[in-house]
Amino acid sequence: MTRRPALHIPGITEIPPSASGMRIGLFGGSFNPMHEGHLLVMEETLRRLQLDALWVLVTPGNPLKDNKALPPLENRVQAARQAIRNPRIRVTGFEAARGFAYSWQTVDFLTTALPDRRFVWIMGADSLADFHRWQRWRDIAARLPIAVYVRPGAARRALASRAATTLDYAQIDEADAAVLADCAPPAWIYLQGRQSTLSSSAIRASRNLD
């Protein structure tokens, strides 16, 4: 199994507290940096999926991207925490402490270690478009429900993607968003709603021009 070296940082790499029966969204990413678009997805999914909490999983590095210029994990976690005001949203870099390199490892661990929580994986439509490139993506879909939130310009590519067509039979109606956390996987939903045109890559590019 591919793993990174474990990285333990007090106050940064602990798993957030939770209780049996909680409905918890998992929203992973590099968050370099966290921006308004991320916050919008978090608030909308918290409300529409009727979640008790949302965990922002700040990854040590995306396996599909070049991470050479990625700021340290601690910096990104702290910056994300400063951007968030909702007490139900918790930011953690716990994947680094476990040496996880891929999302399926995170999903496998959490659903095994905390089987009485009702986890939902949250991603943007741009991520759904590339979901089939994720290592063991079918295993992720088989372990917990997935909520996909619309992203500007990504809808057509996302809904025509390999993952979306493969899992077409498991898609539930948008009107049933409140019951997604109770659905046995595979189950996924595509959520339309408010959108932001901001992206982390565009923000980084604008900073480089300053």
Rank of each mutant, 00 (worst) to 15 (best):
V77Q: 08
A69V: 01
L70Y: 00
T92F: 10
L64C: 09
F94S: 06
T92N: 12
K68C: 09
L64I: 12
A83M: 14
P72G: 04
L73Q: 06
A79S: 14
D66H: 07
P60E: 06
V91A: 03
P63T: 01
Q82I: 14
A83Y: 04
A79D: 13
R88K: 15
L64P: 00
Q82H: 15
D66G: 02
N67K: 02
V77I: 15
L70K: 05
Q82P: 00
A80M: 06
N67V: 07
G61W: 05
K68H: 13
I89W: 04
R90Q: 15
N75F: 03
G93L: 11
L73S: 07
A69F: 02
L70S: 10
P72V: 11
R76W: 07
F94N: 08
R88L: 14
N67M: 06
R85G: 15
A80K: 03
A79H: 08
I84N: 09
L70I: 07
I89D: 03
R81P: 02
V58Y: 01
N75P: 00
G61V: 05
E74W: 07
P63E: 08
P71R: 11
P60Q: 04
T59C: 12
Q78F: 09
A79L: 12
T92G: 09
L70R: 05
V91H: 00
P87E: 15
A80T: 14
K65D: 04
R76I: 08
T92Y: 02
R90G: 00
K65V: 04
E74G: 01
V77C: 11
P71F: 11
A80E: 04
P72M: 05
N62I: 02
A80L: 04
L70T: 04
F94V: 09
A80H: 00
N67E: 07
R85T: 15
T92W: 07
L73V: 10
L73E: 07
G61S: 11
I89P: 01
R76P: 04
P63F: 08
L64N: 11
Q78C: 12
G93V: 10
R85M: 14
G61R: 10
L73D: 10
K65T: 06
R81D: 05
Q82W: 09
R88V: 06
A80C: 13
N62Q: 00
V58S: 00
P71Y: 12
R81T: 03
K65F: 06
Q82V: 12
R76E: 02
R81K: 14
R76L: 06
